[in-house]
Computed example of a mutant assay.
Amino acid sequence: MIALDNSTKLREVVVGSDPANHDALVGHVDTSKFAIGGPDGAGHISPGPNPYDLLSASLAACTAMTVRFQARRRKLPLERVEVGVSFHHGAQGERDAFKRTLLLEGELDAQQRAFLLDAANLCPVGEILGISADIHTYPDTATTGHNATTQATYVDDLAELEIPNINPD
Protein backbone atom coordinates (compact mmCIF):
# COMPACT_ATOMS: atom_id res chain seq x y z
CA MET A 1 0.00 0.00 0.00
CA ILE A 2 1.26 3.46 -0.87
CA ALA A 3 1.50 5.86 2.04
CA LEU A 4 0.01 9.25 1.32
CA ASP A 5 2.34 12.16 1.97
CA ASN A 6 0.46 15.03 3.57
CA SER A 7 3.43 17.37 3.08
CA THR A 8 2.98 17.35 -0.71
CA LYS A 9 2.88 20.88 -2.10
CA LEU A 10 -0.42 22.24 -3.32
CA ARG A 11 -0.98 21.85 -7.04
CA GLU A 12 -2.29 24.73 -9.04
CA VAL A 13 -4.18 24.48 -12.32
CA VAL A 14 -3.26 27.31 -14.65
CA VAL A 15 -5.37 28.19 -17.71
CA GLY A 16 -4.19 30.65 -20.33
CA SER A 17 -3.98 31.42 -24.01
CA ASP A 18 -2.42 28.70 -26.12
CA PRO A 19 0.86 30.09 -27.54
CA ALA A 20 0.26 28.12 -30.76
CA ASN A 21 -3.35 29.33 -31.16
CA HIS A 22 -4.27 32.56 -29.34
CA ASP A 23 -8.00 31.93 -29.75
CA ALA A 24 -7.76 28.70 -27.77
CA LEU A 25 -7.14 28.05 -24.08
CA VAL A 26 -4.87 25.44 -22.59
CA GLY A 27 -4.75 24.15 -19.03
CA HIS A 28 -1.58 23.12 -17.22
CA VAL A 29 -1.11 21.01 -14.10
CA ASP A 30 2.57 20.38 -13.40
CA THR A 31 3.84 18.97 -16.73
CA SER A 32 0.40 17.92 -18.03
CA LYS A 33 -1.33 20.06 -20.66
CA PHE A 34 -4.90 19.87 -21.96
CA ALA A 35 -7.03 21.88 -24.35
CA ILE A 36 -10.06 23.71 -22.97
CA GLY A 37 -12.96 24.20 -25.33
CA GLY A 38 -15.66 26.78 -25.49
CA PRO A 39 -16.50 30.10 -27.08
CA ASP A 40 -13.53 32.28 -27.94
CA GLY A 41 -15.39 35.59 -27.99
CA ALA A 42 -15.02 35.88 -31.78
CA GLY A 43 -17.90 33.59 -32.72
CA HIS A 44 -15.92 30.35 -32.76
CA ILE A 45 -15.99 27.34 -30.45
CA SER A 46 -12.55 26.04 -29.50
CA PRO A 47 -12.24 22.25 -29.42
CA GLY A 48 -11.76 20.39 -26.17
CA PRO A 49 -13.74 19.87 -22.99
CA ASN A 50 -15.57 22.97 -21.78
CA PRO A 51 -15.69 23.96 -18.09
CA TYR A 52 -18.86 21.87 -17.45
CA ASP A 53 -17.14 18.86 -19.05
CA LEU A 54 -14.10 19.39 -16.83
CA LEU A 55 -16.30 19.66 -13.75
CA SER A 56 -18.10 16.44 -14.72
CA ALA A 57 -14.75 14.75 -15.43
CA SER A 58 -13.53 15.73 -11.96
CA LEU A 59 -16.58 14.13 -10.36
CA ALA A 60 -16.24 11.01 -12.54
CA ALA A 61 -12.51 10.60 -11.81
CA CYS A 62 -12.94 11.09 -8.08
CA THR A 63 -15.86 8.66 -7.99
CA ALA A 64 -13.92 5.98 -9.89
CA MET A 65 -10.94 6.38 -7.55
CA THR A 66 -13.16 6.24 -4.45
CA VAL A 67 -15.05 3.14 -5.62
CA ARG A 68 -11.81 1.39 -6.63
CA PHE A 69 -10.22 2.29 -3.27
CA GLN A 70 -13.19 0.95 -1.29
CA ALA A 71 -13.28 -2.26 -3.37
CA ARG A 72 -9.58 -2.90 -2.76
CA ARG A 73 -9.89 -2.03 0.90
CA ARG A 74 -12.71 -4.58 1.31
CA LYS A 75 -11.01 -7.05 -1.06
CA LEU A 76 -14.05 -7.10 -3.34
CA PRO A 77 -13.69 -8.72 -6.78
CA LEU A 78 -14.09 -5.47 -8.74
CA GLU A 79 -12.29 -5.92 -12.04
CA ARG A 80 -13.25 -2.65 -13.70
CA VAL A 81 -15.13 0.54 -12.87
CA GLU A 82 -16.40 3.11 -15.34
CA VAL A 83 -18.18 6.29 -14.30
CA GLY A 84 -20.24 8.51 -16.60
CA VAL A 85 -21.29 11.97 -15.43
CA SER A 86 -23.46 14.63 -17.05
CA PHE A 87 -24.43 18.03 -15.67
CA HIS A 88 -28.04 19.24 -15.84
CA HIS A 89 -29.62 22.57 -14.96
CA GLY A 90 -32.50 22.37 -12.54
CA ALA A 91 -35.94 23.53 -13.52
CA GLN A 92 -36.73 27.08 -12.44
CA GLY A 93 -36.13 27.37 -8.71
CA GLU A 94 -34.63 23.87 -8.42
CA ARG A 95 -31.03 22.88 -7.86
CA ASP A 96 -28.72 21.90 -10.66
CA ALA A 97 -27.83 18.21 -10.73
CA PHE A 98 -25.20 15.75 -11.85
CA LYS A 99 -26.32 12.40 -13.20
CA ARG A 100 -23.70 9.79 -12.35
CA THR A 101 -23.79 6.26 -13.78
CA LEU A 102 -21.51 3.48 -12.52
CA LEU A 103 -20.49 0.41 -14.47
CA LEU A 104 -19.07 -2.20 -12.10
CA GLU A 105 -17.50 -5.31 -13.61
CA GLY A 106 -16.41 -8.37 -11.70
CA GLU A 107 -17.89 -11.26 -9.76
CA LEU A 108 -19.74 -8.97 -7.37
CA ASP A 109 -22.90 -10.06 -5.58
CA ALA A 110 -25.87 -7.72 -5.07
CA GLN A 111 -24.71 -6.64 -1.59
CA GLN A 112 -21.22 -5.81 -2.85
CA ARG A 113 -22.64 -3.81 -5.77
CA ALA A 114 -24.91 -1.88 -3.41
CA PHE A 115 -21.95 -1.16 -1.13
CA LEU A 116 -19.90 0.20 -4.05
CA LEU A 117 -22.81 2.37 -5.27
CA ASP A 118 -23.03 3.83 -1.76
CA ALA A 119 -19.23 4.26 -1.71
CA ALA A 120 -19.54 6.54 -4.74
CA ASN A 121 -21.16 9.09 -2.41
CA LEU A 122 -17.96 9.24 -0.34
CA CYS A 123 -16.10 10.93 -3.18
CA PRO A 124 -14.52 14.18 -1.87
CA VAL A 125 -15.26 16.10 -5.09
CA GLY A 126 -18.88 14.98 -4.81
CA GLU A 127 -18.98 16.28 -1.25
CA ILE A 128 -17.91 19.72 -2.49
CA LEU A 129 -20.20 19.79 -5.51
CA GLY A 130 -23.12 18.47 -3.47
CA ILE A 131 -23.21 21.76 -1.56
CA SER A 132 -24.77 23.53 -4.54
CA ALA A 133 -26.03 20.71 -6.78
CA ASP A 134 -27.74 17.36 -6.36
CA ILE A 135 -25.83 14.23 -7.38
CA HIS A 136 -27.92 11.26 -8.50
CA THR A 137 -26.10 7.92 -8.75
CA TYR A 138 -27.40 4.99 -10.79
CA PRO A 139 -26.12 1.53 -11.69
CA ASP A 140 -25.34 1.21 -15.37
CA THR A 141 -28.50 -0.81 -16.09
CA ALA A 142 -31.01 1.50 -14.41
CA THR A 143 -33.60 3.55 -16.21
CA THR A 144 -33.28 6.78 -14.30
CA GLY A 145 -36.40 8.68 -15.23
CA HIS A 146 -34.17 11.73 -14.80
CA ASN A 147 -35.92 13.91 -17.37
CA ALA A 148 -36.96 16.93 -15.35
CA THR A 149 -34.05 18.92 -16.74
CA THR A 150 -32.00 19.16 -19.87
CA GLN A 151 -28.28 18.73 -20.04
CA ALA A 152 -26.49 21.99 -19.33
CA THR A 153 -24.84 23.75 -22.24
CA TYR A 154 -21.86 25.89 -21.35
CA VAL A 155 -22.05 28.00 -24.52
CA ASP A 156 -25.72 28.83 -23.88
CA ASP A 157 -25.03 29.72 -20.26
CA LEU A 158 -22.15 31.96 -21.23
CA ALA A 159 -24.33 33.74 -23.80
CA GLU A 160 -26.90 34.49 -21.07
CA LEU A 161 -24.42 36.36 -18.88
CA GLU A 162 -25.40 39.94 -18.34
CA ILE A 163 -22.47 42.17 -19.15
CA PRO A 164 -22.75 45.53 -17.42
CA ASN A 165 -22.43 48.70 -19.42
CA ILE A 166 -19.12 50.33 -18.77
CA ASN A 167 -19.08 54.01 -19.53
CA PRO A 168 -15.57 55.40 -19.80
CA ASP A 169 -15.10 58.84 -18.25
Rank of each mutant, 00 (worst) to 15 (best):
L10H: 11
M65Y: 00
G130N: 12
G126C: 03
R11I: 02
I2Q: 13
Q111A: 15
M65C: 00
L10I: 12
T101K: 09
L54D: 01
P47Q: 13
I36Q: 00
N6Y: 01
G126V: 05
G38R: 07
L103G: 07
C123T: 13
G41A: 14
C62R: 00
P139I: 08
H146I: 02
P168N: 10
R11C: 00
A91H: 08
L76H: 05
E79Q: 15
L78F: 06
S46N: 08
A119N: 04
D157A: 03
P168H: 15
L55S: 13
T149Q: 01
V125F: 05
A24R: 14
E79P: 00
L25V: 07
D134Y: 01
S32P: 00
E79Y: 08
G106P: 12
F87N: 02
E79V: 07
E82H: 09
I131R: 15
A24S: 08
S46T: 06
L76Y: 11
S7N: 11
N121F: 01
S7M: 10
P51S: 06
G27I: 03
I36E: 07
G93N: 13
E79I: 05
E12A: 03
L122K: 12
G145I: 01
T141W: 10
A64R: 04
Q70K: 00
E127N: 10
P51T: 13
L102G: 07
I135T: 11
H136D: 12
N21Y: 06
A3K: 10
H88S: 09
A133W: 01
P51Q: 12
V83D: 07
D156W: 01
L117S: 06
A152D: 01
P47K: 14
N147C: 05
R11N: 03
H136I: 06
N6G: 05
F34N: 11
D30A: 15
A57V: 02
E12H: 13
V81A: 12
A60M: 07
D140A: 15
L158W: 08
V29Q: 06
I166E: 06
L122M: 07
S56R: 09
K33R: 07
A20H: 15
L76D: 06
P168A: 11
G16L: 08
T153V: 10
L54Y: 06
G84M: 02
Y154S: 04
R95N: 11
G41F: 10
T150K: 03
T141D: 11
M1S: 13
T144Y: 00
E79R: 14
R74L: 07
Q112D: 14
T101E: 10
A119I: 02
L108Y: 14
L25M: 15
H22M: 14
Q151W: 01
D96V: 00
T8Y: 09
Q92M: 08
P39R: 06
E162N: 13
P49T: 06
D169W: 12
D118M: 08
S86W: 01
I45H: 06
R74V: 00
A35H: 04
T143E: 10
S132A: 15
L158G: 09
C123N: 04
P39C: 04
I131M: 09
R68Q: 12
G27Y: 06
P168D: 10
R100E: 15
Q70M: 11
Q112N: 05
G16N: 14
H146S: 07
S46A: 14
G130C: 03
F87M: 10
S7W: 00
F115H: 08
I45F: 08
A91W: 03
